[in-house]
Amino acid sequence: MATNGVDVAGAVRDTIYRAAIHLDAQKWDDWLELCDEKFHYAIKAFSPEINYDMIYLQGTRKEMQTLIKLLPKHNTDHSPLTRHTTVYTVDVAPDGKSAKAVSSFVIYQNMLDGTNSHIDAGESRLFLVGKYIDTLEVSDGKARFVDREVRLENRRLDKGSHWPL
Protein backbone atom coordinates (compact mmCIF):
# COMPACT_ATOMS: atom_id res chain seq x y z
CA MET A 1 0.00 0.00 0.00
CA ALA A 2 1.42 3.36 -0.98
CA THR A 3 0.88 6.32 1.31
CA ASN A 4 2.32 9.64 0.13
CA GLY A 5 4.31 7.73 -2.40
CA VAL A 6 5.79 5.35 0.18
CA ASP A 7 5.29 1.60 -0.05
CA VAL A 8 4.45 1.10 3.62
CA ALA A 9 3.73 -2.60 3.33
CA GLY A 10 7.00 -3.05 1.50
CA ALA A 11 8.85 -1.23 4.28
CA VAL A 12 7.20 -3.46 6.86
CA ARG A 13 8.20 -6.61 5.00
CA ASP A 14 11.71 -5.30 4.59
CA THR A 15 12.09 -4.72 8.32
CA ILE A 16 10.73 -8.16 9.21
CA TYR A 17 13.08 -9.88 6.79
CA ARG A 18 16.05 -7.79 7.89
CA ALA A 19 15.25 -8.74 11.47
CA ALA A 20 15.37 -12.41 10.52
CA ILE A 21 18.76 -11.96 8.88
CA HIS A 22 20.18 -10.06 11.86
CA LEU A 23 18.85 -12.65 14.31
CA ASP A 24 20.26 -15.50 12.20
CA ALA A 25 23.62 -13.75 12.22
CA GLN A 26 23.38 -13.11 15.98
CA LYS A 27 23.78 -9.41 15.28
CA TRP A 28 21.65 -8.54 18.27
CA ASP A 29 22.44 -4.83 18.25
CA ASP A 30 21.50 -4.57 14.59
CA TRP A 31 18.22 -6.31 15.43
CA LEU A 32 17.57 -3.86 18.26
CA GLU A 33 18.28 -1.00 15.86
CA LEU A 34 15.12 -2.09 14.05
CA CYS A 35 13.17 -1.75 17.32
CA ASP A 36 11.66 1.47 18.61
CA GLU A 37 12.49 2.74 22.10
CA LYS A 38 9.05 1.60 23.27
CA PHE A 39 9.54 -1.86 21.80
CA HIS A 40 8.09 -4.80 23.71
CA TYR A 41 9.01 -8.42 23.03
CA ALA A 42 7.25 -11.58 24.18
CA ILE A 43 7.47 -15.30 23.48
CA LYS A 44 4.07 -16.88 24.05
CA ALA A 45 2.41 -20.25 23.65
CA PHE A 46 -0.92 -21.74 24.53
CA SER A 47 -0.71 -24.92 26.57
CA PRO A 48 -3.63 -27.31 26.20
CA GLU A 49 -2.01 -29.30 29.00
CA ILE A 50 -2.78 -26.60 31.56
CA ASN A 51 -5.33 -24.69 29.45
CA TYR A 52 -3.35 -21.50 29.84
CA ASP A 53 -2.00 -18.88 27.48
CA MET A 54 1.59 -18.68 28.62
CA ILE A 55 4.34 -16.13 28.33
CA TYR A 56 7.71 -17.86 28.16
CA LEU A 57 9.76 -14.65 28.06
CA GLN A 58 9.00 -10.96 27.76
CA GLY A 59 10.81 -7.69 28.03
CA THR A 60 11.14 -4.09 26.96
CA ARG A 61 13.81 -3.02 24.52
CA LYS A 62 16.02 -2.07 27.46
CA GLU A 63 15.45 -5.41 29.17
CA MET A 64 16.24 -7.32 25.99
CA GLN A 65 19.36 -5.22 25.56
CA THR A 66 20.46 -6.15 29.09
CA LEU A 67 19.84 -9.86 28.52
CA ILE A 68 21.86 -9.69 25.32
CA LYS A 69 24.68 -7.77 27.02
CA LEU A 70 24.97 -10.48 29.68
CA LEU A 71 25.01 -13.40 27.25
CA PRO A 72 28.82 -13.77 27.34
CA LYS A 73 28.60 -14.43 31.08
CA HIS A 74 26.30 -17.40 30.53
CA ASN A 75 26.94 -20.90 29.30
CA THR A 76 25.01 -21.38 26.10
CA ASP A 77 24.38 -23.96 23.43
CA HIS A 78 26.14 -22.30 20.51
CA SER A 79 24.28 -24.13 17.76
CA PRO A 80 23.19 -21.34 15.40
CA LEU A 81 19.51 -20.80 14.70
CA THR A 82 18.26 -20.22 11.17
CA ARG A 83 14.84 -18.77 10.55
CA HIS A 84 12.65 -19.25 7.54
CA THR A 85 10.14 -16.42 7.62
CA THR A 86 7.27 -15.62 5.35
CA VAL A 87 5.24 -12.47 5.80
CA TYR A 88 1.62 -13.48 5.38
CA THR A 89 -0.28 -10.26 5.96
CA VAL A 90 0.47 -6.57 6.40
CA ASP A 91 -2.38 -4.32 7.52
CA VAL A 92 -1.44 -0.69 7.25
CA ALA A 93 -3.29 1.86 9.37
CA PRO A 94 -5.32 4.44 7.44
CA ASP A 95 -2.84 7.17 8.26
CA GLY A 96 0.01 5.03 6.97
CA LYS A 97 2.04 5.55 10.14
CA SER A 98 1.71 2.09 11.61
CA ALA A 99 1.03 -1.46 10.53
CA LYS A 100 0.34 -4.88 11.89
CA ALA A 101 1.94 -7.91 10.29
CA VAL A 102 1.62 -11.62 10.70
CA SER A 103 4.47 -13.84 9.57
CA SER A 104 5.03 -17.54 9.74
CA PHE A 105 8.38 -18.90 10.84
CA VAL A 106 10.21 -22.10 11.37
CA ILE A 107 13.51 -22.05 13.24
CA TYR A 108 16.11 -24.70 12.62
CA GLN A 109 18.91 -25.42 15.03
CA ASN A 110 22.12 -26.05 13.15
CA MET A 111 23.94 -28.33 15.54
CA LEU A 112 27.37 -27.20 16.61
CA ASP A 113 27.94 -28.13 20.25
CA GLY A 114 24.80 -30.12 20.83
CA THR A 115 24.72 -33.48 22.55
CA ASN A 116 27.83 -34.87 20.85
CA SER A 117 29.46 -32.55 18.36
CA HIS A 118 31.42 -35.38 16.75
CA ILE A 119 28.13 -36.94 15.70
CA ASP A 120 25.68 -34.05 15.66
CA ALA A 121 27.64 -31.02 14.45
CA GLY A 122 26.56 -29.96 11.01
CA GLU A 123 23.09 -31.43 11.28
CA SER A 124 20.02 -29.18 11.14
CA ARG A 125 17.08 -29.96 13.38
CA LEU A 126 13.67 -28.40 13.45
CA PHE A 127 13.59 -26.40 16.67
CA LEU A 128 10.54 -24.14 16.69
CA VAL A 129 7.40 -23.42 14.68
CA GLY A 130 5.21 -20.38 15.07
CA LYS A 131 4.21 -16.92 14.00
CA TYR A 132 5.56 -13.44 14.46
CA ILE A 133 2.75 -11.04 15.27
CA ASP A 134 4.30 -7.63 14.83
CA THR A 135 3.27 -4.02 15.25
CA LEU A 136 5.46 -1.49 13.53
CA GLU A 137 5.61 2.25 13.20
CA VAL A 138 6.52 3.80 9.88
CA SER A 139 8.21 7.13 9.32
CA ASP A 140 10.48 8.45 6.60
CA GLY A 141 9.85 5.30 4.66
CA LYS A 142 11.31 3.07 7.41
CA ALA A 143 9.38 0.61 9.57
CA ARG A 144 10.44 -0.08 13.17
CA PHE A 145 9.09 -2.67 15.56
CA VAL A 146 7.10 -1.44 18.53
CA ASP A 147 5.80 -4.85 19.49
CA ARG A 148 6.73 -8.41 18.60
CA GLU A 149 4.83 -11.42 19.84
CA VAL A 150 6.59 -14.68 19.03
CA ARG A 151 3.71 -17.13 19.12
CA LEU A 152 5.08 -20.66 19.44
CA GLU A 153 3.29 -23.89 18.65
CA ASN A 154 5.85 -25.79 20.73
CA ARG A 155 5.68 -26.78 24.36
CA ARG A 156 8.40 -29.35 23.97
CA LEU A 157 11.43 -27.12 24.02
CA ASP A 158 14.21 -29.46 25.14
CA LYS A 159 17.26 -27.42 26.04
CA GLY A 160 15.61 -24.10 25.19
CA SER A 161 17.74 -21.11 24.25
CA HIS A 162 19.23 -17.91 25.63
CA TRP A 163 18.71 -16.05 22.39
CA PRO A 164 15.89 -13.90 21.05
CA LEU A 165 13.90 -15.84 18.49
Binding site: M54, I55, L57, N75, D77, T115, L157, G160, S161
Partner: peptide, 25 residues
Protein backbone atom coordinates in the same frame (compact mmCIF):
# COMPACT_ATOMS: atom_id res chain seq x y z
CA UNK B 1 5.26 -13.96 39.08
CA UNK B 2 5.52 -15.27 35.55
CA UNK B 3 8.40 -12.90 34.85
CA UNK B 4 10.16 -13.99 38.03
CA UNK B 5 9.66 -17.64 37.15
CA UNK B 6 10.69 -17.36 33.53
CA UNK B 7 13.68 -15.08 34.01
CA UNK B 8 15.69 -18.05 35.28
CA UNK B 9 13.48 -21.13 34.99
CA UNK B 10 11.69 -20.63 31.68
CA UNK B 11 12.84 -22.37 28.49
CA UNK B 12 14.39 -19.06 27.46
CA UNK B 13 15.51 -18.09 30.97
CA UNK B 14 19.04 -17.81 32.28
CA UNK B 15 19.48 -20.99 34.36
CA UNK B 16 17.39 -23.82 32.96
CA UNK B 17 19.15 -23.79 29.59
CA UNK B 18 22.48 -24.16 31.38
CA UNK B 19 21.22 -27.00 33.58
CA UNK B 20 19.94 -28.91 30.57
CA UNK B 21 23.19 -28.43 28.66
CA UNK B 22 24.92 -29.89 31.69
CA UNK B 23 22.89 -33.08 31.92
CA UNK B 24 22.85 -33.50 28.14
CA UNK B 25 26.63 -33.43 28.28
Amino acid sequence: RINHHNSIWGPFGRNLHEDLIGVAG
